[in-house]
């Protein structure tokens, strides 16, 4: 969109297209393998074993016969509806809490001046540098003390207090916004809150969308958090369900791949639909101002 007025020639576009198409092969191959395995019978997955080298080719990616029933079989293993509901619950609250609070904090770091701002910012960044493995115990003990063990609270409450990762990302974005508009607004007597909600937020939609995406992915994929704090199967999430396919003695590869495919599919659809909206330019809107 934004580039269309300064856009490259047709030949250049064709070159880019070709480059992307070539790169797409290694990017897609593992995924193709995942989906193809999810449709295979166990016998086809294994028949390459011990059959000597050279048996593997692209043709082996085609399931023969196609076993659709790997999917219902995978679905039967876990209480899907419950897990899906719990996962969505955690995702929605996480996005609302984390992106909202992080945007506020990021505005403070990017667009206001106060003593100790730099030091505080570095402090925040450095909190990410300590591996969580050693803070897990005191953190756990703390939440236990709060009486939050066995509930979603240890997972949900902290997200409302901003995530350093998102604050950092948003700060970088907020800093690139032109200053003139907010300066004009200050002259007009607008408060920082007004500048934040009326100018900065609307101009930062791509960044906010990116943050939402990361938060969503984080919550969607997190199995560790729920596992540590929750002791009731009724409260577990999809990511936990996926773990169930990975047992030392299981080896149901086709079902694991079917489950993984199902687990990934909603995000793919979501991204495909959303990317148009959120990658669409602030450049345009900013330009029209």
């Amino acid at each position: 969109m934004s580039n269309s007025l300064t856009g490259p020639t047709l030949a250049q576009k064709a070159t880019v297209w070709a480059a992307l198409a070539i790169l797409a092969v290694p990017a897609a191959l593992p995924l193709v393998w995942m989906v193809s395995t999810s449709l295979k019978a166990d016998t086809q997955i294994y028949n390459a074993v011990g059959s000597g080298a050279g048996a593997v080719s692209l043709r082996s990616l085609i399931p023969d016969p196609v076993r659709w029933d790997n999917y219902p079989a995978a679905l039967q293993t876990v209480p899907l509806v419950d897990y899906l509901r719990n996962t969505i619950l955690l995702c929605v609250v996480s996005i609302l809490g984390a992106v909202g609070s992080s945007a506020i904090v990021a505005y403070g770091f990017a667009r206001t001046e106060f003593r100790g701002r730099h030091a505080l910012f570095l402090l925040m960044i450095s909190t990410m540098a300590l591996p969580g493995q050693v803070t897990m115990i005191p953190r756990f003990a703390m939440f236990k003390e709060f009486g939050w063990y066995g509930t979603y609270l240890p997972l949900l409450v902290p997200v409302f207090f901003a995530s350093p990762f998102l604050v950092f990302l948003l700060t970088q974005f907020f800093k690139t916004l032109p200053n003139e508009m907010s300066e004009a607004a200050v002259v007009d007597g607008a408060t920082d809150w007004a500048i934040f909600t009326r100018i900065v937020l609307p101009l930062s939609k791509p960044a906010l969308a990116t943050c939402s995406l990361f938060t969503f992915l984080g919550a969607w994929n997190d199995f560790f958090g729920p596992l540590l704090y929750i002791n009731d199967p009724a409260k577990y999430t999809l990511a936990y369900g996926l773990q169930q396919f990975l047992s030392a003695y299981g080896g149901k590869w086709a079902q694991l791949m079917a489950a993984s495919t199902l687990f990934t599919l909603p995000i793919v659809v979501l991204f495909f639909l959303a990317q148009k909206t959120f990658i669409q330019g602030i450049a345009t809107t900013g330009g029209k101002g």
């Binding site: 580039n3 880019v16 797409a24 593992p30 995942m34 992915l217 993984s260 793919v268 495909f272």
Partner: peptide
Amino acid sequence: LLNVDIKGQSVFRTLFFLPSIVPGVA
């Protein structure tokens, strides 16, 4: 590359983004 306005841009974007959303276990 993905910022160049070409045919199938959104498909490419989704495709290249996909690997990062497949759960780690898988």
